[in-house]
Simulated assay, not measured.
Amino acid sequence: MKNWIKITLYIIFIIIIISLGINIKLYLDNKLLLKPKIIIKNDGINPFISKKELLETLEMNNFIFKDQKIKELDIESIEKFIGSISQVKSVNVFQEINGQWEINIQLRKPIARILNKSGETYYLDAEGNTMHTTRTHTARVLVFNGEIRDKADNFSVNQIINNDSLINILKLDDIYRISNYVCEDTLFQSMMSQVYVDKNGDFIITPMIGDQKIIFGTANSDQEVESKFDKLKTFYTEAMKHEGWRKYKEINLKYEDQIVCKKKELIK
């Protein structure tokens, strides 16, 4: 008899717990949805999207709306939508048991801005992928223009490197090597602003200090890029401090183990 009483009480207890759980869920599901906590991580200087802009974008696309209930929140669709934004590297959207929810975003880091022959403008990020520009935010990175055929959303740097036919006609991998090196070097990062690709495929750098042009030539490997920048740094730190920034009109790094310079003509 006592066992039956215990079993009955246990069943009643389980029913009460389940009922409470169902009632709590129904209560929470019908509560009004609060605004999300948004965390945006950005490795670059200027973030490409702000918390306010993200909220406005979600509202504009009806992922968030007035008098929205917790049960009407579609986390999977929101995460997929944010992940499709060109400037977003990764996103995680989750909801806590009390109905509060959070959006965590990692933005891409742009290292170069490219203006190709077709007039299309886009960024190249630190992982060698292209990303679109925005009307509201601009990254302070090297700008590349000239004889560049590469288009946005076409090929990544890794795809070009691993394709013998692409590597001979596209410049994105070379642009990546130069811009990636400059981004990691505080001296060159503060000195260089624009790079032009001429009809021969040579990269010509325009520094922010002085009016000379730097004939960089090709950038076919990391070793080549590092060697040329090492030569340039030696020239800047040793020769320029004696000769001055405005004495030369051209600094040519194309030749192995040497720098060929042209001085400005003296005005009589």
Rank of each mutant, 00 (worst) to 15 (best):
I17M: 13
K247L: 14
A139K: 01
L266A: 12
V197Y: 03
L170W: 03
E96Y: 11
D29Q: 13
P47H: 08
S227A: 14
W245M: 05
N3H: 09
V88F: 09
I178V: 14
I40R: 02
V88E: 01
E56M: 12
T133P: 00
G21Q: 10
I103V: 15
N98C: 08
E256G: 05
I40L: 08
I175L: 06
I178S: 02
K109N: 14
L34I: 11
P36A: 00
I97D: 10
K69G: 03
N154F: 10
W101G: 06
K268L: 09
W4T: 11
K241L: 09
P110Y: 00
I114P: 01
E147T: 08
I169M: 07
K249W: 01
L142F: 03
F48T: 05
I24S: 04
E147Q: 11
L124V: 11
L172P: 02
R149G: 04
I103Y: 02
I105Y: 03
E53V: 02
D150L: 00
I16M: 13
E224T: 14
I148H: 00
P36Q: 07
P47N: 08
I178C: 05
N168H: 04
E79P: 06
K89S: 12
D67T: 06
I205W: 02
T57D: 14
V143S: 08
S221N: 08
W245D: 00
E102Y: 15
F235K: 06
L253N: 01
G44W: 06
L34S: 15
K263N: 09
N116G: 02
F216R: 00
T133E: 12
K233L: 13
N3R: 14
F235G: 02
L124F: 00
D173F: 02
G201V: 05
D173L: 05
T206H: 10
T218N: 11
E226C: 06
L20H: 00
M192D: 00
I82G: 02
E250G: 05
I22Y: 13
V182I: 15
P110R: 06
S227N: 14
F81R: 07
Q212V: 07
E120V: 02
I18P: 01
